[in-house]
Design a protein around this nucleic acid. Structure first.
Lengths: 338, 338
DNA sequence: TTGTAAGCGTTATCAC
DNA sequence: GTGATAACGCTTACAA
């Protein structure tokens, strides 16, 4: 499909394309009436400036900011993204979403993609300690900021919570509440943030004259599923801990599920403290009976139709309506009235 | 900063830029050895093709797909995005994230932005029933797919769960479990999905000889906060319902919080059923004691540094390290051992 | 198999 | 104030 260009506006108004460009741009050195005529014509023709072409001039970059996150289903990242999106919007920057699922190859591919598309900057949320991909950003001189955890591979701008202090807060709180037998469900290995929180765990233990048993440090992959499955290791311990310090709320969710299923009461049998305060942490426990929407399937379907429309160049004029069957998931929020 | 172009590779290898282009592209009509030489040079020079320039040739579009969502903190959308991202990746498409916060002006701005950046397609998740912005997409002939709810303003490709059927499932389940006094916390007005679920609520009520009181249909803004605050209306009812059918899990979360705070037991006093089955619904939700990370503040800070680096063109060579103070949020998962 | 040249939609630099 | 013209980095006929 042919789009309206400044040449169309030039033809329509009788001015040259340079004049049109000036009128549409900053508007310096141009007669007021000329500018108005051109703007009117642009509106009439439904003109949308081609930002791609604009970016090409003088080797400018685009207005895209790459937002690289390890796991977009982790609510922490979502809250971060939302905040960043709200802020950069003011500068007419936009976000290209790059979800890596903790896969370094995927991360590299995304970084290369961002470079190829001349992204103007990158935010990378929680890279691994020895992430070599950052060297690409440095070499190519792309402005970027790291969030969440320090790295070894480059000198970077970093925004993070004070992980060591936070973990100390958690541990001291447990100690202050009388706990002595404490297990730490740690984050993934190869992350500075994981190490910092482990260090705080160890330091606080030692400061209180408690012994450190490495079995009491259980690594996770930073998902509820991983927290849940790694919680099985609790059974191998000589005694059940009275308290657990989880790497983050997301992991805590999985650990919690395991404990409940095994009949432990929280906090009566085992105490639990998290990290992050994702929005839903504040809600009281709920094991919600609900109607399931198969989001994955629907996402695939939507993507499939879109891709086909793009490839077919809108050949199929009959619009599709796909209604996926919902299912009922029976949990514990509905009482049976006999 | 000057980037490597095909001309640099041409100079390096002695071939013309068209030959370089051919070698880098599909590779038709080119001597094997030539191609290899060029590819080696490209690698040596750290060449990244300029996709922006590529897109400009022959008025092609970019590989960007606009993903417009009403509320990125709603986990349903996140799961949808993730699924779509995983799928379109195979076609070398990427996502430009557009979060509208249910603001139609914002949505229009995003759609215009996508057109200006020559996005190749758009997925729009849950538009309003009378969303005029869709007409822009139709007029400009941008391939797009609607997710979640039917619209009046255009004939569209639609992927959605069967909302009426799903709501019927929920209502019939409540009825089958003996409930007669049922309140519906509905979605936002002006959405077909809201209407469809309300219709199911009414139909099932009537089919079972139950009266419909419009006070028993309480509209929300589709957030936990809104569910929580609208739940106050329960107090105005003559009797407390024995069951609540919530528009979705996200809303149910807020309603639940209200009930618990007011001393109602779920499901003993009031039953609750949601819609969606977002991933965390299956977990016993916690009232987790945790360490708070101020994500909003950190996002702003990260964005601020990045924007400054972009504007300053990397003038500030001293890297910043910002560590935000965490705070402890005391809830109910830690037992005090006396 | 390779090179030349035109063109994609802009902006920027000159003249006039 | 305005209009040619070059340039941005690439692809693609068309020639050679």
């Amino acid at each position: 499909m042919k789009r309206i260009t400044i040449i169309d506006i030039a033809n329509e108004t009788g001015f040259s394309k340079s004049t049109v460009s000036r009128a549409l741009g900053d508007g310096s050195n141009i007669k007021k009436s000329t500018k108005n005529k051109i703007l009117r014509a642009a509106k009439k023709l439904n003109y949308y400036p081609n930002e791609i072409a604009r970016s090409l001039v003088a080797s400018k970059n685009t207005n895209f900011i790459g937002m690289i996150v390890s796991d977009i289903t982790n609510q922490s990242y979502v809250e971060l993204i939302k905040s960043i999106e709200g802020h950069i919007k003011k500068f007419h920057f936009n976000i290209i979403l790059c979800n890596t699922d903790y896969d370094l190859d995927e991360e590299r591919r995304y970084i290369e993609l961002l470079i190829r598309n001349r992204a103007i900057g990158v935010v990378i949320a929680a890279p691994e300690k020895n992430d070599k991909n950052l060297e690409i950003l440095v070499r190519e001189n792309i402005p970027f900021v790291v969030w969440g955890t320090e790295v070894n591979t480059a000198d970077v701008d970093l925004v993070s919570v004070d992980n060591y202090e936070g973990a100390r807060l958690a541990m001291n709180y447990l100690i202050d509440n009388g706990h002595r037998n404490i297990v730490h469900f740690a984050g993934p290995e190869n992350f500075t943030v994981t190490e910092e929180r482990i260090k705080a765990y160890k330091d606080v233990m030692l400061e209180n004259g408690l012994k450190i048993d490495n079995k009491n440090i259980i690594y996770t992959k930073n998902t509820p599923e991983s927290g849940y499955s790694m919680a099985k290791n609790l059974e191998d311990l000589k005694t059940m801990p009275t308290a657990i310090f989880a790497f983050c709320d997301y992991v805590a969710l999985g650990v919690w599920k395991y404990l409940i299923e095994k009949g432990y009461k929280v906090p009566d049998d085992v105490s639990l403290i998290g990290f992050d305060d994702i929005e839903t942490s504040g809600f009281k426990k709920i094991d919600l009976t609900t109607i399931r929407q198969p989001f994955k399937k629907m996402g695939e379907k939507a993507a499939e139709i879109l891709v086909r429309n793009i490839k077919d160049h809108n050949l199929s004029k009959i619009k599709e309506k796909i209604y996926i069957k919902p299912t009922l998931i029976e949990r514990s929020t509905v009482r049976k009235i006999s």
